[in-house]
Design a protein around this nucleic acid. Structure first.
Length: 645
RNA sequence: GCCACUUUAGCUCAGCUGGUAGAGCAACUGAUUUGUAAUCAGUAGGUCGUUGGUUCGAUUCCGACAAGUGGCUCCA
């Protein structure tokens, strides 16, 4: 007999060799039907795998993250079985569970598949699921495994086997399909009741674009149809707040084939948002001791050789223009110009920290397939600044930048993000990163310490640094789940030396400053794209392109409305009168759909009492108010940059 | 850049197996002068992304190119 300890601390005795599924059955049949996998001594196991020793046991169901991912991983195998049935000779690479569903990468031997194939595969998967086949685990010797896949001619699984040893190799079989897999899996295919194959994509083998491209099929499954329907509905809802849709509906920006891919033209509404953001940045930066500068969008090749952009970043730059025997590049970053500003006049330690800020326009030649609405474009406006400081000043300056983020995030109510310490990768020194192994480690430690001391939670990721140093990136997600860096705070130990930037110390010697590159508001493009989604288009009053819409009940009240408009405009409020010959219901509806924060209905009563019949977007009628009373209220809301709800 | 898909009026979308296109909203005109999420009527608007090919005939079939979308690689 063995002792099985449950999450609540209860201990029950079972015969050795009992499976988690048996345990579940001993509790209730209903529970047994729901069990997908089990956590045995903290490891996720097949629910059917025998437990031979004392163990702590947690039964995993659809409600557990590990239960879901086991379910999805098993679904990937089910899909593979369907694929193999329909396309004999297919070779498989890997098929993991992901945040939402699963995928499987495969080599279809040059065969192209399309959406019709997905439908056929779904149908096949449903048939196979109904067979209710068991997922059977088998431990297997390496030699035998190699033999199996050699006979099958599957070089991908053979590649996987290279890194595995005897004793850690298992095969899983369900129905007619056998796969090299560490598991675990759900007990039987029958619990997969609702299946949706989402898309086909190319995926480079091992994620390297020099390798062959495999076919990847994404799918998702659920234990019942209702949850699948809900999931698909949720995706539909998310699309409604997609910044590309809102950007069009609210006339924020436009693009044009004749202008070029990834080149945003900001319409008047979008431009208002830009100007408000810049106002916020300029106020904040002035307060924090930054000086503003303005620099050109191009520079000669020589500067980008000095900066390291041409050796390390050339792929992301537009090709040069030649004139008068010189090559000029459109800039992809503002830093070199700012370094020249630093170098323009001699600096002493008394001038440091020297902080220069510019809403800098940069151009990046992003590959066409990477462009994405406002989030990934080829011309961007960065909330850029560079801080030149001594080593001693670094920690305080770096922290001050982090505080600036947090201050901004509070204003915008941004709370779903991850701070990421992006480190270099040793293998790519001299290729992607400047070749200074010691300095990398030193500055990475410096940043790590600042973050730890400030008590700001962060994660560390290899091979994500800038070419000139490590950075803290703030990661956010678009409504369709794509991850982006919203803001960034970077250390640069390299360009100061390349540009021979120096300051005179107290001892009258020369030192090279450390440089911080920072963009707490990221770029206008990505930040506004993010804000549109974050607010679902319902921007707070201070950012709203149109803040108040005055809606006359009939044309008799237009002169009064225009007078109110004059008053509000004089105070700096963005206001318009809906003078159209329409009924009030329609004017309200359109203002609501246009996401105008305040609507002022004006009829006989309001005009007689010098009032406005107010509505708040999304909330409906909030009662009548005197014009100056309303003006004071909205001015305060704007001044305080209140977030609305 | 690579894989898959999409592209019809300003917007959202119909258009079965090839016989040169339709709706709703928006726009314009007129009527109505309106009290908290769509007043009624009329008018105008499209060489069906571009370009080759197949065909008596192409929005429809095939190819190329462009842009967009979902991924991969890459990134603020």
């Amino acid at each position: 007999m063995i002792n099985v300890t449950f999450p609540d601390g209860a201990v029950r005795q079972y015969e050795a060799g009992v499976s988690a599924l048996d345990v579940a059955k001993s509790i209730s049949e209903g529970l047994a039907r729901k069990v997908l996998a089990a956590s045995v001594n903290g490891q996720v196991w097949d629910a059917t795998r025998p437990i031979n020793e004392d163990a702590t046991l947690k039964l995993l169901t659809w409600d557990d993250t590990d239960g879901k991912s086991t379910f999805w991983h098993s679904s990937a195998h089910l899909m593979a079985e369907a694929v193999e049935t329909m396309f004999p000779g297919v070779k498989f690479w890997v098929g993991p569970a992901i945040d939402r569903g699963f995928y499987y990468d495969m080599d279809l031997g040059g065969k192209q598949i399309g959406e019709d194939d997905l439908k056929a595969l779904e149908k096949k998967m449903n048939e196979l699921a109904k067979q209710n086949n068991a997922y059977q685990r088998k431990e297997i010797a390496k030699a035998e495994a190699i033999k199996y896949f050699e006979e099958k001619g599957d070089e991908y699984k053979l590649d996987l086997l290279q890194n595995l040893n005897d004793g850690e190799i298992t095969f899983y079989t369900q129905g007619q399909f056998t796969d090299l897999c560490r598991g675990p899996h759900i007990p039987t295919t029958g619990s997969i009741k609702a299946i949706k194959l989402m898309s086909i994509a190319g995926a480079y083998w091992k994620g390297d674009e020099k390798n062959k491209q495999l076919t990847r099929i994404y799918g998702i499954t659920f234990p019942n149809q209702k949850e699948l329907d809900e999931y698909l509905l949720m995706l539909e809802e998310a699309k409604k707040r997609d910044h590309r849709k809102l950007g069009k509906e609210l006339s924020i920006y436009t693009m044009d084939d004749d202008v070029g891919q990834g080149l945003i033209m900001w319409l008047p509404n979008g431009t208002i948002i830009i100007e408000e953001l810049e106002k916020l940045a300029k106020e904040t930066e002035a307060e924090a001791g930054y000086k503003r500068v303005v620099t050109p969008h191009i520079a000669k090749e020589s500067m980008y050789l000095t900066s390291g952009h041409l050796p390390y970043y050339a792929d992301s730059m537009y090709p040069p223009m030649e004139l008068e025997g010189e090559k000029y590049y459109l800039r992809s970053m503002n830093c070199p110009h700012h370094h020249k500003i630093f170098a323009a006049e001699p600096k002493s330690y008394r001038d440091l920290p020297y902080r220069v800020a510019e809403y800098g326009t940069v151009y990046r030649y992003e590959q066409s397939g990477e462009l994405f609405g406002l989030m990934r474009v080829r011309c961007l406006h960065m909330n850029d600044a560079h801080i030149y400081c001594t080593k001693e000043q670094f920690a305080a300056e770096f922290k001050a930048v982090n505080d600036m983020y947090l201050k901004y995030f509070k204003i915008f109510g941004i709370d779903k993000y991850v701070m990421r310490l992006s480190l270099h990768s040793k293998e790519k020194l001299g290729v992607k990163y400047v070749n200074e192994p010691e300095l990398w480690l030193e500055t990475e430690a410096l940043v790590r310490d600042v973050m730890t001391e400030a008590g700001i939670p962060f994660i560390e990721v290899q091979d994500e640094a800038a070419f000139y140093g490590p950075k803290i990136d703030v990661q956010i997600w678009s409504v369709i789940g794509r991850e982006f860096t919203l803001a960034t705070n970077q250390v640069d130990f390299s360009q100061g030396r390349s540009f021979k930037l120096q300051y005179t110390t107290q001892d009258n010697t020369s030192e090279t400053p450390l440089i911080i590159h920072r963009a707490p508001l990221g770029t206008h493009e990505r930040f506004i794209g993010f804000l549109l989604e974050h607010y679902a288009g319902k921007l707070p009053v201070w950012l709203a392109p149109l803040q108040v819409k005055i809606l006359p009940i009939s044309e008799k009240f237009i002169p009064y409305c225009q007078e109110v408009q004059r008053q509000l405009r004089k105070a700096g409020v963005r206001v318009e009168v809906d003078e159209r010959n329409e009924k009030i219901g329609k004017k309200i509806r359109e203002a609501e759909l246009g996401k105008v924060p305040y609507m002022a209905v004006v009829g006989e009563r309001e005009m007689a009492e010098n009032k406005l019949g107010l509505r708040r977007q999304g909330k409906g009628d909030i009662g009548a108010q005197a014009v100056d009373e309303f003006l004071n209220m909205i001015l305060e809301e704007i001044r305080e940059r209140k977030s609305g709800e």
